[in-house]
Simulated scan of single mutants.
Amino acid sequence: MMSGNYTTIDNQNVSGSVPAVSDPPGQVSVKFNDSTLQTFPPSGTQGKISGASGPPRDADDTFSKPVSGSSEAQQSSGWFKAFTVAAYQPYFDVDTSDVLERIKDSLLPFGGSFNEKTASNPDLYGPFWICTTLIFVAASIGTFVTYLAHKLQHKEWNYDINLVTWSAGVFYGYVLVVPLCLYIILKYFSAPSGLVQLFCLYGYSLFIFIPAMCLSVVPMEIFRWVITGVAGVMSALFVSLNLRNHIVAAGERWFLIVAGIFLLQLALSVVLKVYLFNVNV
């Protein structure tokens, strides 16, 4: 029916689409050609817009970078990452129970499972504090014993600062240089091991020398040699047995490498006996 200038359509006659309505007299209808219509966004690539919903490439490059001053950490690339604190943060992510468990494993050298337990989470926290404790224990015990010796003999006593610097150079240097050299050797024989894991292994291997150094105050030379020998053998066994299964992959020369590791750890104990455990009262 007609009401003014509008036309109503019976809903019951509509099936899927609206039928064309004839133009009433006096009205002109405007028809749009379908070819002139355009869907948005375009499916084809035009300019910098690619795809139906992809942003421009320059926008990708711009907004993918962290904003200056934002909470997102700035990630360095290449060798510059080694000079950032964030690069070493995962290696200090351990709690007290982890450190105590690894110290206990270092006192049981025949287990040989230290590398497997620390393969997914080697730490540098324990090795750092073990070496630092050794330095202060060596300096404090040596200083205290020499102080008592001078007082008992009524002689003038002077503190020797070289004991601290010498022990710091020995412990820190050993834990850094020896694992690095071993890492290069293993890489040459196509049996590479993780560098941080080697630092972790050698750092915990020195813990046995802390109680040995405390027992060195006993004024008996034979007892000191026994203590030093036991500590050196346990430390050497701990390192060599944990690396043996891994070094076997190096080929027929694996025995020479393991023997060299064992003897080098024994040599460290002899050096400690001569220069640190040799306290005269």
Rank of each mutant, 00 (worst) to 15 (best):
N115P: 07
Y91F: 08
E252M: 09
Y275V: 06
S193T: 14
K187T: 14
Q197H: 07
Q38I: 14
Y202V: 03
N5S: 14
L276S: 02
S106Q: 07
S29I: 09
T96P: 13
G251M: 04
S77Q: 09
W166A: 02
D105M: 06
V281F: 01
K81E: 11
A250T: 00
Q27E: 11
F223A: 12
I261W: 03
V18G: 08
W129E: 02
P41Q: 03
K117E: 12
N245K: 10
I208W: 05
P55R: 10
C200S: 07
T96L: 15
S106G: 06
F63G: 03
A119N: 12
D160P: 01
V270L: 13
I49G: 15
L186F: 07
T165E: 00
K155P: 08
P211T: 11
S140Y: 00
S3E: 14
L264V: 07
S106P: 02
S17E: 12
W225R: 03
L124T: 03
L256H: 10
P127V: 05
P24V: 07
L134N: 04
A86T: 07
P41S: 04
L148W: 06
F171D: 04
R224C: 01
P122Q: 08
S15A: 14
D23A: 08
L264K: 01
G69S: 05
L215E: 05
M220S: 13
L108V: 13
E72H: 14
G44K: 08
P66F: 02
I261R: 09
A249D: 01
T146D: 15
Y125D: 10
G26Q: 04
T62Q: 12
L263Q: 01
S205D: 12
Y174R: 04
N278E: 08
P19Q: 13
I135F: 00
V279I: 15
F209N: 02
L180R: 08
S240L: 07
S167L: 00
D60W: 13
T96K: 15
P19I: 12
F136G: 01
S53V: 09
V281W: 06
V178E: 13
W157Q: 06
E156G: 11
T118I: 10
C181I: 15
S193D: 13
V258P: 15
V21K: 05
F189M: 12
E72L: 15
F114H: 08
A139K: 00
P25Q: 14
V94A: 10
W225F: 02
V258H: 12
F223E: 08
L134Q: 05
G194R: 11
I247E: 01
L215C: 08
V28C: 07
R244Y: 10
W166F: 10
C181H: 03
I130V: 06
N242A: 04
S77T: 10
A87C: 05
L264F: 07
K104R: 14
R244G: 10
P19T: 09
I222S: 14
A138R: 00
L100S: 06
S77P: 01
V270E: 06
R224P: 02
T45K: 14
W166S: 02
A259V: 02
A249L: 12
F144V: 07
N121W: 03
W157S: 11
L206Q: 09
P56A: 14
F40A: 13
L198P: 09
